[in-house]
Write a protein that binds this DNA or RNA. Structure first.
Lengths: 186, 186
DNA sequence: CGCGTGATTGAAACCCTTCAAGTTTAGTGG
DNA sequence: CCACTAAACTTGAAGGGTTTCAATCACGCG
């Protein structure tokens, strides 16, 4: 059965480094419905799926679930935000089927001993941004998405026409204009 | 003024490697409205923004633009699909403001000489998946998103309840059921 | 000053949600 | 292996948010 460490076979990793990584990975069996990670938690681990099927998802303020991703055999799942920013998790992770997984500590994902570390960190940041964007698109109202955009990219708001912000938020310029009108009244 | 290569200062990159990277990067000045990359093209370069503002976006079948991201000073923009899969670009890239950029060949992003190459490639693939998901969420109909899901993850379709697929697609179980009903009739 | 682009506003249409009821499927215990 | 129950799926009606289309307004630039 596959392991997360199979990713490194064929690469020029040293046997010692591989052994050290191995010591940081623990195999675990999880039952259907078992929750591995909860929103708000800080345990910064990822999960490699050896067999079975996991999912990650958010729960919005109305209690509705929005699935961010499925992870069948061979996939890695978790909340990237935990690894790059030590934030609290935005996501839940649980098992859709009985599964066998490897619990992978964040220092295995992010090895600061590698020359490619900068490139890796940059990509993790981008993944985090994209993850947040998808969650927002699926679970937040237009107004909340707009407020978040203003908060996240205040400089860009000043520099692009409003219709481009609408295009980024996934709505028509008219819809954004109306929301802004509503907001101004209060 | 900043350069893409600033990312490497402080890392343990060799001076020779740095010099080689430098030779592969070209600085360019682009005017407002100038298009750097078109949907369907294959030139696999990325763009580092030294000054100004770029954007990437799709155009759907109705001619409507959907902005995938903005890239102000210090950001990198492009279509990740070009680098990981040699696909045709899904995105356009153009300049919102007059900008100064660095054109970065894909072999600078993806340096196969690094021990971290595997980790980098895995992340690039994930970025590509997330990019595609965002584009789908913003520009495709529910029916098209569903068909794409079936096509991309045929194994998962068999293993999860339909309401979870709905949750992944960003709609209610009822909406997906109705679309399926419509599709079955034809 | 006039023109073009962007922003706003309104009305009608559309897609999806919400809520509710009914049907099918799957799992469990007798 | 059947009976029962819970969960999943379907279907319908009403409501809401967004789109579409059209008209008007505001503003910067030639």
């Amino acid at each position: 059965m596959k392991s997360f460490l199979d990713n490194f076979t064929g690469s020029n990793i040293t046997p010692e480094a591989l052994r050290e990584l191995k010591s940081k990975i623990k195999t675990k069996r999880v039952e259907k419905g078992e929750v591995l990670l909860r929103k708000g938690e800080k345990s910064s681990s990822g999960y490699f799926v050896k067999s079975g099927l996991l999912r990650s998802y958010t729960v919005d303020e109305k209690g509705k679930e929005h699935i961010f991703m499925f992870a069948p055999e061979g996939w890695v799942i978790g909340d990237i935000g935990l690894q790059i920013a030590e934030k609290e998790s935005d996501l839940f992770v649980d098992a859709i089927e009985q599964s066998e997984i490897e619990v992978i500590r964040s220092d295995v994902f992010l090895r600061t001993d590698l020359p490619g570390e900068v490139a890796i960190t940059k990509r993790d940041r981008r993944i985090y941004v994209l993850q947040k964007r998808i969650i927002m698109l699926m679970s937040a109202s237009l107004q909340d998405r707009y407020l978040d955009f203003i908060d996240t990219y205040p400089d860009i708001v000043q520099r692009v026409p409003q219709k481009m912000i609408a295009s980024y938020l996934g709505v028509t310029p008219e819809a954004l204009s109306k929301i802004r009108g509503d907001m101004a009244k209060k």
